[in-house]
Design a protein around this nucleic acid. Sequence first.
DNA 1: CGTTGCCTTGACTAGTTTCAAGATCAGTGG
DNA 2: CCACTGATCTTGAAACTAGTCAAGGCAACG
Lengths: 233, 233
Amino acid sequence: MATETIIKTLVRKLPVFSGMEEAAFNQLMSHGTQRIVPKNSAVFQQGEEADLFYLLVQGRLKVTQVTADGQQIIVRVVNPGDLFGFAMALGRKDYPGTPVALVDSSVLAWPMEMMSDFMARNPTLAVNTMQMIGSRLDAAHSRIREISTQEVEQRVAHAIIRLISEAGVKDEGGIRIDFPVSRQDIAELTGTTLHTVSRIISHWQGKGWVEGGRKSLLVRDLHRLQQIADSDI
Amino acid sequence: MATETIIKTLVRKLPVFSGMEEAAFNQLMSHGTQRIVPKNSAVFQQGEEADLFYLLVQGRLKVTQVTADGQQIIVRVVNPGDLFGFAMALGRKDYPGTPVALVDSSVLAWPMEMMSDFMARNPTLAVNTMQMIGSRLDAAHSRIREISTQEVEQRVAHAIIRLISEAGVKDEGGIRIDFPVSRQDIAELTGTTLHTVSRIISHWQGKGWVEGGRKSLLVRDLHRLQQIADSDI
DNA sequence: CGTTGCCTTGACTAGTTTCAAGATCAGTGG
DNA sequence: CCACTGATCTTGAAACTAGTCAAGGCAACG
């Protein structure tokens, strides 16, 4: 099928599958099933038994976790080409978070056993996966450092810069994030409240550095945000 | 040599090396070099080129990271049997943190290339390492959730409970952490200041739940700390 | 065209940090 | 063995950041 071939070609180029033998790759692809995830719906729920692991082909997801007392945080944003829901690789049986589509998305899913089998037979895949998880660990540590040592304004600046670098698109007079992000989302990414985020963005807007909108944000002066993010003191 | 055999037997039992073939394991052990790390000295420095990876045989380390503006955080505490300094697995060439011995410690070191070689040939090792990193990622996310949503007192309670569960030893009328931990250390683990930590511990001491000391802490009522850590609101 | 969801803003409050000073303890060298 | 010194810890008071509470505006959607 045409779409299948397109997807296959796309997937083939992903770093996780680099260095994998053609035969193995083909076998992998033949076992994956595609699924469309409409905006605002979840691929699976936190706590569910992890029987499948996923690859985001197209679209954008946010992975949220809810704490015992109902507070929510966004663990990360999933970009096209990212794997997610690989609970097994983390040595657990249930999904630790809930991935929600920020825009209509399309994912590929495989049975979790395939992952262990394939990794046992494809050391490259295992090493690649490990490095992917490793870089995520690195990112998590950066975030811990930020939340621990920086003030809210710096953290918000950082979060926005990160989103821009992952999904920034040029727009009239600036750069815009390619998918809808609410103030609440930014708050959950930075460990603060939507009120504080709103105040900060209003302030920036007053200075002309950004232009706010409903679930959107146009960055006019990225350099200035960088300064805010990096400012010592 | 006698000590060498003892170490080998100890190492053999570690989860990371479980399922590894005897021959491979022996070869691995024959390439490792032992090193004594005196209290308060660093095994290596953050930013150095990562040419070796390590296993903590005996003792206790804290891994710190310094931010651009000089603020410090403790990334984690390394317990006997833990691997550390495996930068390669994270896909980077330099060490992301500095491990400092909290007590006189002993480590085993291997050339970093051995790690990739061995993982390429021992899928089990690769999967084990991946799961270890995965569980660390899990822990990092928990910490992000805590710092983002909980108040300092809860976070301090959590940190102490974690230290107790990793290295708690019975003492007269309570449990004590097996190695020296300063108020500053706890502050760097929880993203606060030593002043606030001191106040909180003083308060607990007033209630009779703990007993403070210089770089030490006797927990008299662990259950109460649990309550504090888990208290909603 | 009303209802719902998202965003903004002001006023108030509270938890933490910052600043400052002093107490206490451990180790060191005379 | 004891005074000295540096590190660690405690505590008070002031300053402030960010959260909470509350109300209203605005835009999208059915």
